[in-house]
Nucleic acid binder design. Structure first.
Length: 311
DNA sequence: GACCAGGACCAAA
DNA sequence: TTTGGTCATGGT
């Protein structure tokens, strides 16, 4: 493993990032949890938290994907977004108590993750708890992903690459269902969507283009079975780097009602109501970074109000 | 034992 | 257009 010291002037709360950014593949190591590991863009990556204005990045090569580790870190943790001034002064004045709570999460980053991995992961996230979601993703990688043993400080860590689209596309649904909470429909949906990626019917690079509106992306992705508005928006936000996407789940709906008094938030989340709420949220938070800001609100809500289990 | 957990989808009203 | 049931299982 090679070591790269990554200095960053902006605050980065790695642990919150990795949980909140849906990075189910990360693993924590050591009693103090100082080391976290994963395979990103085909490279083994270990982040060592130094808590002194930097992190040490351990990788198995000089690049991650096609980028240098420094460039990768900046892009993956979206350090190009200034989270110090994420919420405008008018917003902070209008919601002073909330603004104070949000201060604690300034180091939270929305990650730019692999779109295919993001897609499959969120397809596993329907109507069940976090523990089950993480287990499904972990089982998929173990059963269908390539094994990568990693040596760190004399200990061996067993990592698994996330399966390729062609591997999952060729899987037997009856076998795959063991990894999808025994849900046969979900297994079939993942296989079908993976085939679409392999065949090029779903082209993430083209989808991410700024030329596409949120509606375009939602329409293209929800042609896949098992992907509705919410999952499509999650793929856009976390996998396509579209920080204007604003996914609304049960938690988002709750805080839109409680914190901002949106009357529509008390109604069920039908497609029509979803679109109304998303539009109102974009008006409140600004178009360009609505999803990024929404994720800070989400994480604050989950941590302060609805206690979520730790990373 | 009930209820909820980071939904999608179909049929019926 | 909205409502209700279904898929599934583990934690509280």
């Amino acid at each position: 493993m090679k070591r790269f010291f990554i200095e960053h002037s902006e605050a980065v709360d790695i642990n919150h990032c990795l949980f909140s950014g849906q990075s189910f593949s990360w693993q924590k190591h050591g009693n103090d949890g100082r080391y976290v590991s994963a395979i990103i863009n085909g490279s083994a990556v270990v982040i060592e938290n130094t808590n002194d204005g930097g992190v040490v990045l351990h990788t198995d090569g000089n690049t991650i994907g096609v980028e240098s580790p420094q460039v990768w870190f900046r892009r993956y943790f979206s350090l190009d977004v200034d989270t110090e001034t994420l919420f405008s002064e008018p917003f902070r004045n209008a919601h002073p108590e909330l603004a104070l709570q949000l201060e604690r999460y300034r180091g939270l980053r929305v990650l730019r993750q692999d779109p295919y991995e993001t897609m499959v992961t969120f397809m596993c996230a329907q109507g069940i708890g976090m523990a089950l979601i993480r287990r499904q993703v972990s089982m998929l990688a173990r059963r269908y992903g390539e094994h990568v043993p990693l040596s760190l400080n004399g200990c061996t860590i067993n990592l698994y690459r996330f399966p390729t689209p062609s591997r999952l596309g060729a899987a037997d649904p009856m076998e795959l269902r063991a990894c999808t909470n025994n849900n046969l429909m979900r297994a079939r949906n993942i296989i079908s969507a993976s085939q679409k990626v392999t065949e090029g019917c779903i082209d993430f690079k083209a989808l991410a283009s700024k030329k596409n509106t949120q509606e375009d992306i939602q329409a293209a992705l929800s042609r896949c079975g098992g992907i509705g508005l919410k999952i499509a928006d999650c793929i856009a936000l976390f996998g396509l780097g579209r920080f204007d996407a604003f996914p609304i789940d049960t938690h988002v709906r709750q805080f839109l009602g409680l914190w901002f008094g949106f009357p529509e938030a008390s109604a069920p989340l039908t497609d029509k109501n979803y679109r109304i709420l998303a539009e109102r949220a974009r008006e409140l938070l600004g178009e360009k970074l609505a999803g990024y800001r929404g994720h800070h609100l989400f994480h604050c809500w989950r941590t302060e109000v609805r206690k979520m289990q730790a990373f």
